[in-house]
Computed example of a mutant assay.
Amino acid sequence: MNWRDLLYFSKGERRALALLLCLITISWILLLWTDGKRMPIASQTDAHRTENRQASGEKRIITGKNTSEKETDSIRQESVSHPNGNKNTLKGKNSALAGNSSYPIGKKRKEYSPYTRTEKYTPGTLVELNTADTTILKKVPGIGSTFARRIVKYRELLGGFYDVSQLAEVYGIDEERYQALAPWFIADTLHIRRLEVNALPAAVLRKHPYLDYRQAKAIEQLRKQKSRLSGWENLQLIEEFTDTDKKRLTPYLSFK
């Protein structure tokens, strides 16, 4: 078999091959013509977008680690007028606008101050309960800002603590927490603020945690009858007061 026979095409095959080549050529021409037509339209669209941004004053901000040096320089050179007339500037590759478009010139950024953990007292330390402020109370293990404020507030209502066991009456201090806190405190009764029974009206007396409305009114009525109360022997005549009340109120009532 001669190799020339392999390259022999019949008349019909030559026509089909020629038609196929024509179709391929036409397809390439159409493809190139279509791409060439699309490019000016895209360029024209970008040009319109750029003109619209310039007309509205909108600025394109590029942020992130991949910001190019050219884009960074353009950001650095832009300045935006602040409403009060000051000019703001952007610095750094990763500058971004969040709420404000820039940071005022000459205004120092507020330095971040890390949270400082309160140093606690060592075991064996005793804290006087009636004179300690919130700063001192927070140094006691188991007491944070919330409990420190609650202790001080309850102390003001009472007029002072006459016993450490009264800590258990502070809101949120349960039995377990009280047992952990009690060894850290002592209570000096010399700092207790007493209520003048013969001078204060019922509206003031009733604000004390150990006195309710009925008891305060009873004291006021008895005082009107006797003109002056001399001591607990007068209050024992009133059914509103029990032995438990006497024990709790004795450190806080003054009959002078």
Rank of each mutant, 00 (worst) to 15 (best):
R4W: 13
L7D: 13
K11C: 09
L17A: 14
L19W: 07
L23N: 03
T25Y: 02
I26C: 06
L30I: 04
L32Y: 11
W33Y: 11
T34V: 04
D35S: 14
D35Q: 12
K37R: 10
S43I: 01
H48M: 09
R49N: 08
N52Y: 13
N52A: 15
Q54A: 13
R60A: 13
G64Y: 07
V80D: 05
V80L: 10
N88K: 12
T89S: 15
G92E: 02
S102N: 08
K110M: 09
S113E: 12
L129Q: 04
T131Y: 12
K139W: 03
T146P: 02
R150L: 04
R155C: 08
L158S: 04
F161M: 06
V164K: 07
V164A: 11
Q166T: 02
Y171C: 00
G172F: 11
Y178V: 05
A180I: 09
L181T: 00
P183V: 00
F185H: 05
A187H: 11
A187M: 08
D188P: 12
A199L: 04
A202K: 07
A202V: 00
L205Y: 02
K207A: 02
A218K: 05
L222W: 07
Q225V: 08
S230P: 00
Q236R: 12
E240T: 09
E240C: 06
D243G: 09
R248N: 10
L249T: 03
P251G: 02
